[in-house]
Simulated scan of single mutants.
Amino acid sequence: MAAPLAPRGRGTASNPFNRYAPTRSEAFDDGWFQEVPPSRATEVRLETAKSIITRNQSPDLPFDCSVNPYRGCEHGCIYCYARPSHAYWDMSPGLDFETRLIAKSNATALLEQQLSKPGYVCAPINLGSNTDPYQPIEREHRLTRQTLEVLLRYRHPVTIVTKGSLVLRDLDLLVQLAEQNLVAVMISLTTLDDELKRTLEPRAAAPSARLRAIRVLRENRVPVGVLCSPMIPMINDMELETLLEAARDAGARNASYMLLRLPREVGPLFEEWLQAHYPRRAAHVMSIIRQCRGGEIYDSRFGHRFKGEGPFAELLAQRFAVAIRKLGLNRRGGYELDCSRFCPPGGQMSLL
């Protein structure tokens, strides 16, 4: 059976049962075929969260604390490593992940509570570690902006990772944070090919819009870098040097990259996408991925999961190192933010 076409503006046509579902069903081709799949509207459910700051001990990440105002992501990136997390809410990592979203309505109130606790130790908080803080529904819900307002009021450092041009809406806050060395932004740039972006990241900002975001942030003295992620063998890895050069020309001051990750349900969804859009290349792409992951399609080990191993992964790392040195992007990544300014409203800052 041919790989199904995704609904317009979505990353996948599939909605596989999550791994915790008690029952499962199997699709059957009865001979009827719909050339253009119907669109599927985005649903947003409000949630009263119990906590908002998530902590990690991963040596692969440059931060220990993160805040994610939303569950699920409307950008619909087919490769998104966060898709499996939707199973925890009894929803599919497939189409549900990009259409049935959850907004944490009390995110800012919870954040203020946690930051005001007497024993709280300040460390940079990352926005965008799981789902994009500037996905389209942020226009209406404004949870990311409200979070930045709280962090600015508390003089708390923050890092942002996004592929959404909506980040420029909050330029006024970002400039104030930057003046106190409290913010750094990384713009995720995957391809400069609009057609590839349309199927790979259907509702994310266009490549030109992301480059404009880098340019505007740099012009306003907001520290900004580029994250070339994910690098997908035989799909966009040939663009690595071009992406880095375009980001440098736009004003990025540092760069990073990640190799494609396919945890749990993401693997089958990505293979289905390959069959739909690159059927002649699919087997070769998956073969290289397995070479980079010790014969499997995913390797979750710290120190390996972001970069991979083997000839292809090593060559990609060498290409990246040469390119950032040549382009002057090999500076450290903007995470040396000032934690000494942290002070809850009404509190007294340290004299030292």
Rank of each mutant, 00 (worst) to 15 (best):
I102N: 01
R153D: 09
A103C: 04
R153E: 08
N330F: 07
G76F: 09
V185A: 04
L177V: 06
A246F: 08
R40D: 06
I324Q: 00
K197E: 05
I235A: 07
P223F: 00
R331W: 10
I297S: 04
R145S: 12
G72W: 05
N220S: 15
V175Q: 06
R331P: 02
P59L: 09
A283R: 12
L329A: 05
G346H: 09
P133N: 06
A109L: 08
C80E: 01
R71P: 04
E271V: 13
R153S: 11
G251F: 01
R290A: 12
Q135V: 14
V150R: 14
L259F: 10
Q57V: 15
G308V: 03
R55N: 10
R169L: 06
P202T: 01
T144D: 01
G251D: 07
P345K: 06
T108P: 01
A282H: 09
Y335C: 12
R319C: 14
L327Q: 08
L143A: 08
G94D: 00
T199Q: 11
L240Y: 10
D30K: 15
S116Q: 09
R332W: 13
R153Y: 06
R212W: 14
A321Q: 15
L148F: 01
L182I: 03
G31P: 01
Q135S: 12
I214R: 06
S85K: 01
R145K: 13
C80I: 10
D237I: 03
L61S: 12
A107I: 09
L217I: 06
F17V: 09
P59S: 10
